[in-house]
Each structure stands twice: as C-alpha cells, then as structure tokens.
Nucleic acid binder design. Structure first.
Lengths: 189, 189
DNA sequence: GGGTGTGAAACTCTTCACAGCG
DNA sequence: CGCTGTGAAGAGTTTCACACCC
C-alpha cells in the first residue's frame, strides 16, 4: 500500500486516503498509528517514507530475519520465489526436502538440503522463522524437528492442526478456510 | 480438525476438546456453535458427524462450488494441487494463463485456457469464485476481467491492493503479512 | 484550513457462572 | 453427573467529536 504511494512520488498521506486504500476507517487508522507514537503532522498527514520506516521498526523488520523453507514442492517453490517477501529484509537462507533427487539443487537462489541436516543448518544460518510446506502427513514430524532445533516461530501451510509447545508460535495459513469464508459470504449475500 | 476426530473413530466431542484443538476457549466454541442452532447434547457433547454436516451447510459447502484459477505459475499450480480444497465440495473447473505455451495443457486435471476466453468459459462452467495467482502487475487487469464476467467473490494472492466494486468481495492472502506478524511476535516475546 | 491525536460514548466481543437437560 | 446453552458482567474495540497544532 505504502509502496504504491512511494512509487507515485507521493510524500505525504492522510488517514482518509489510507482508509480508502486499506478498508479500515480513518479514525481507526489514526488510533492504531498513534498507539505506537506520533508519526503524523497536523494539517498535512503522515510521511510515506517515515511511516514505512516506523512500521518496519515496529514489526522488527528493520533488522534482517532469516527464513527457512521446509518442503520444496510446488507450494514451497512458489513461496521461495514469492515477490512479497523480498520487499522486507526477511530472506530465505536455506531450504529442506526429503526427496533425495532435489538435494543439492537451487530454487530461487536457495540451496535445497536434506531434512536430516536441519538442526545443524538452522543454527548455522541463524534461522528464527521456518515455513512448513510439506504434505499434511509429514507436517507434525517437521514441526517437532523444528522445535527441537530451537525455532520459536513457524508458518504452517499444511492443512492440519499441529501440536506445539506454548512458547512456540504456530501461524496457520489454511487456504481452504479462505475459500470457505468467501463461499459463506456468497451464500449470505 | 473434525476430520482428525472422525478418522480416530470418535463420534462425540466436547467443547473442552474442541477448545484444545482449535485454540479458542470452550465457552467461545459453545457460543459460536449455539449462534447457528442447537447442535450439542447436554452431558455428551457434539456429534462429530453432525457438526461437520451442520458447518458444511452453514458455509454453503453442501452444494458444489465451482472455482477458477487465474495464473498457472508455481503458485497457481500449487493451489490447483492443494489437498485442502478437495475435502469440500468445491472444485476447480477451469484455469487460465496468458502464456501461450501453457494453453491446452492440463494441471491437476484442470485444463489451462487463454485469458481471452475467460468471460465465456466462466459463464459456461458456472464459476462463482475465482482465485488470482498472477504477478502483481497484472492482478488489477485480471480482477477487472473477472468482475466484467460477473464474478462476485475473488481470492487474491498477488501482493497488491486491488480496487473492486462494492458488491464484489475480494479476500487478500498476503503471505508477507503472515511473516510480518510472526516477526513482530518474535520481537515482542 | 486541514488533518492529527485523543477523551468519552457506543458498541461488540469474550468470559464467567450456572440453570437445565440428557 | 457432565456438558450444553445462555443471561449477565466484564473487557476490549470502534466510532464520534473536537481540541490543538502545522
């Protein structure tokens, strides 16, 4: 969103404009931003550049975040190549797969390693966030390995409820849920 | 979640157990379910089978929902093959791509058609929900075409804010946002 | 004038506690 | 007895309105 404005050369943006772009109400936008500090100028709006930097800092994206991908099937490949990640300072540093034929290959500039080396390589590369893109049947095993390697944040794309210790955050992206939500919305106008 | 229980032969499930599996509190589960009707038996719990059917009906998944995929790159391919969708009665009936070399091929049993035929084929196949998995630069054009073809529900995977008429629902799956959320959670314990 | 930041009101959502039924 | 369904209390969130500053 802020990228669009930056690309258009806009330097300042009002909460009203952010409202239109984001779908949140203008007072909402102001309150949420004010929660983290005073970023805006009265009578002018928010500096696009300043806002982006501030949000980056708040999200902890100002310092690089090393990511690992587990599973290099279609989905893993797509995610490795996904443009959205590149805009932040997060980056994939290593990928893993169980298929011996894929080991040693490179996908989107990231080398594919055997799952057996996960523990060691995750520590070596200082990976703090891992993404699970393996078949549902293997997802829990992968999660257990990741937890064993000290990973505290996991993004799971496998359509399965996974068990994890309380101090490990697991965020599920269940693509079917999105379709269900839209289906429900269609059925109820 | 309910699939897990069904697979284990469990016939009834309590709100307490659903709470552990879903992460929502037990009263929360009960209230949400009660909102749609009385599905549970006091002293016993909810029938797994009954619940699944009821939820399916509520979501409008009891009748088939035809889906179209626009964009057959890595992400489109991954989504077409995604297991999660198959469990419901939703199904992909057609896919589109701008690349002439892909036209006529079949991905996960779905034939790839030229984007130029989108309007006609969407109507022919009675598609009501389309998924956008094209590069960000082309996403808005695709959305406009879909809207022109009468599609009222769109799931967008391109990392871009899209403009759509008020009566068209656009659900964005921004994969970067998920990483940002976990990154923020990591930074703030 | 224009747009932020924020107190106060309105609203929604969550939790608690328990009556009541199987 | 065990667990649902739900009124009432509590917490959190959104909206409104406007003082204040650029």
């Amino acid at each position: 969103m802020l990228d669009i404005e930056a690309a258009q050369g806009t330097t300042d943006i009002s909460s009203a404009r952010l409202s239109r772009l984001s779908g949140f109400s203008a007072p909402q936008v102001r309150r949420d931003l004010a929660y983290f500090g005073s970023f805006g100028k009265r009578g002018v709006g928010y500096s696009v550049r300043g806002l982006r930097d501030a949000i980056g800092t708040i999200l902890g994206m100002d310092q690089p975040m090393n990511l690992a991908m587990v599973g290099v099937g279609n989905l893993g490949r797509a995610l490795l190549a996904y443009r959205g990640f590149a805009r932040q300072d997060s980056q994939f540093v290593v990928a893993f797969d169980a298929d011996a034929r894929k080991i040693g290959s490179t996908v989107a500039g990231v080398s594919v390693e055997p799952v057996g080396k996960m523990g060691r390589l995750l520590r070596e590369h200082d990976v703090r966030l891992a993404i699970i893109a393996v078949p549902a049947t293997q997802a829990q095993d992968v999660l257990d390995d990741l937890v064993g390697a000290g990973i505290k944040a996991i993004l799971n794309f496998a359509p399965r409820v996974l068990e994890a210790p309380d101090d490990v955050m697991v965020s599920n992206v269940d693509l079917a849920v999105e379709v269900e939500y839209l289906s429900y919305s269609l059925a109820n106008r």
